[in-house]
């Protein structure tokens, strides 16, 4: 299988390419499901971002993050803004830097999740909202920080659980074979 001759990205065989497409579909599906109350809603798209980063590394992670963010925003009717694409890319990059080709330990998962929570979700995303709608940054930040304090532990546990689950190891063996 000669896949992609004209690129500097790691080569993918057909199965890996289709799997990435399927994971993107799962991400779009999971973005529609959320748990929690009206005040705090958590969706589980970060699980797919972490999984793609773990299996396919930073480059494919960032590429798919861009595509899913742009398409996901456009087909759900939300207002598109480049900043959130940048956030998605940085989130994927962070997961990949901590998890790609490395064992999934508590320390790695916690560090990756905390970096994403602080840099991407608390600071950057609040800043984007400020740029887009002129919402005052400092009055919006506290609410977002409180949300992250509750959500981040949940994310840490779920990412650790998913990436170490028997199912993921089984599928990983099938993808490599």
């Amino acid at each position: 299988m000669k896949t992609m001759t004209n690129t500097w990205l790691p080569k993918l065989d057909t199965l890996s390419m289709v799997t990435l497409g399927m994971l993107m579909a799962l991400q779009l599906v999971l973005s529609r499901f959320s748990v929690g109350s009206n005040l705090i809603k958590v969706s589980f798209t970060f699980l797919i971002v972490a999984l793609i980063a773990k299996w396919y590394g930073p480059w494919w992670g960032m590429m798919t993050a861009v595509v899913v963010d742009v398409v996901g925003t456009l087909i759900s009717g939300g207002p598109y803004f480049v900043g959130f694409t940048v956030s998605a890319v940085l989130g994927s990059l962070t997961y990949a830097l901590f998890l790609y080709g490395k064992p999934v330990t508590w320390v790695r998962v916690i560090l990756a999740s905390v970096v994403i929570a602080v840099v991407v979700n608390a600071i950057l995303n609040t800043w984007w909202v400020t740029i887009m709608y002129h919402t005052p940054f400092w009055s919006l930040l506290p609410a977002r920080v409180i949300k992250q304090l509750i959500v981040t532990p949940l994310q840490i546990v779920l990412v650790y659980w998913l990436l170490n689950s028997q199912m993921i190891k089984m599928v990983q063996a099938r993808l490599k074979g």
């Binding site: 896949t3 992609m4 004209n6 690129t7 500097w8 990205l9 993918l12 390419m17 289709v18 990435l20 497409g21 399927m22 993107m24 579909a25 779009l28 590429m63 798919t64 595509v67 899913v68 398409v71």
Partner: peptide, 14 residues
Amino acid sequence: KVPVDTLAMMLSIA
């Protein structure tokens, strides 16, 4: 050198 065609294929599968 962005693999545009591969990304387009992934997106249509998705």
